[in-house]
Design a protein around this nucleic acid. Sequence first.
RNA 1: GGCCCCAUCGUCUAGAGGUUAGGACACGGCUCUUUCAAGGCCGCGGCACGGGUUCGAGUCCCGUUGGGGCCGCCA
Length: 482
Amino acid sequence: MNDAAAPRVRFAPSPTGSLHVGGARTALYNLLFARHAKGIFVLRIEDTDVERSREELTAQILSAMEWLGLEYDEGPFYQSKRYDLYRAAADGLLREGKAYRAFETAEELGAERKAAEAAGRAYRYSGAGRDLLPEESDRRAAAGERHVVRLKMPAEPIGVDDLIRGRVEFPADALDDFVLVRSDGHPLYHFCVCVDDTDMRITHVIRGDDHLANTPKHVALFRALGAPIPKFAHLGMILGTDRKKLSKRHGAAAVEEWRDAGILPEALFNFLALLGWAPGGDREILSREEMEREFALDRVGASPSVFDPEKLLWMNAQYIARMPAEELLERTVPRASDGAPERAVALRAVELHRTRARTLVELARALSAYARDPAEYEPDGVKKHVKPDTPRQLERLAKRFEDLPEWTAAATEAALRETAEAEQISAGKLIHPVRLALTGVTVGAPLFDVVELLGRETALRRLRTFVEVVAARARTGAAPTA
RNA sequence: GGCCCCAUCGUCUAGAGGUUAGGACACGGCUCUUUCAAGGCCGCGGCACGGGUUCGAGUCCCGUUGGGGCCGCCA
């Protein structure tokens, strides 16, 4: 047993927003990678930005992860509670001459940057702080002069071996001596990341493509820290349908928005897993176990992917169609104003409507028809299906329904067809208005199943209410003098 | 602007030098049917462009174009 061989990965969100589908996909790949290799998945909260980090956002991220099924093995660790570690690391780097103090103010640097931009040059920090004599640096620091700590970047190019992209070379002059610790003592992102990845013995860094250009900084830092360099895997970005980086602008970029829209976590998980990874073959609906078993970084693509809500909806419908009715019902929360039909009815209604709903929200809406009478009738449907004779025909049907010895789909259908025949009209001329009367809409599950499920009392009540309403309308609306 | 990444149907993708370039979503048609779905069947639709390498390039190399990312005392 070689314990060191088990990979350790991490997801490191920053609580400056809710969990994004892009971040969720990153977390998901880390999780799948860890499970596949029997490794460890660590969660680390990067909350060193005191201005922007918010505690309630951390809670939100945690709950979104739990909902999606992104279980971590260690953590959550909070960077805000690990300042001693960063402080010690910074002191060590300073002591070894791998980092140095720089005393320029933010204003001075801003002016330099502006000047460089105006001249059309790429801005890089001059490195002036490097030339300070150690004694002078110590003296000024001891005197309380404000300063940052910067890393001495090596003068040679840095190569990164990426598991997805192969080797990527960065020229030496692409990077300047970046800031590790702010003048107020706060450690900065890149520094914390490397100190923590080292401390947490992270072996594989799987993250978004947007960090690829930061990676040489991290490599230089790991080297300065004398730490092993983890393997990197940079994932293509997730884009909106306009091919721009997915953001709030696109709507529903946050995991919880999809939860609220009635998407099943299993469906989102499956969908996200396939955004950049393909197990090979033509399979698309995969169980969690299959994904864990087959996930491999060498089958992850390097190119960015567009997030297509239509396909997510389709996949969700697939999960809705396959889930046991009991479970589906449990997961479907009725709208508060509707109340819920009794369980046996609801269960049957779920069976009737599951293939007609792409989301839990749509399913809940369909179920509400069994709990309360329609509040209104689709106007176009009334216009199309209600003829002058319709109220009378419906009343005749209602009487027929009253006398039925048994209330079943077959019996009610037979009754309706007989009534239609007696009226010398096609069955459809009755079926459509009845659907409208019972459900308020023109589309839905097979009518006689609905009729049976509603029960005689409810069906008759709705039928007669409808007759009254349309008859009243005909009286008031049929007297236009032109 | 500098540096870096990416490039197969509208979208997600399979393809690891020789394929009629496959599947899925979406779209169109047919079927089933009291409606709407679901399902089944059929169809539309793609290797960004230009050079190489090779007997042979979607696949390898270079360039162009296009898209994206990074260049903070943000993460």
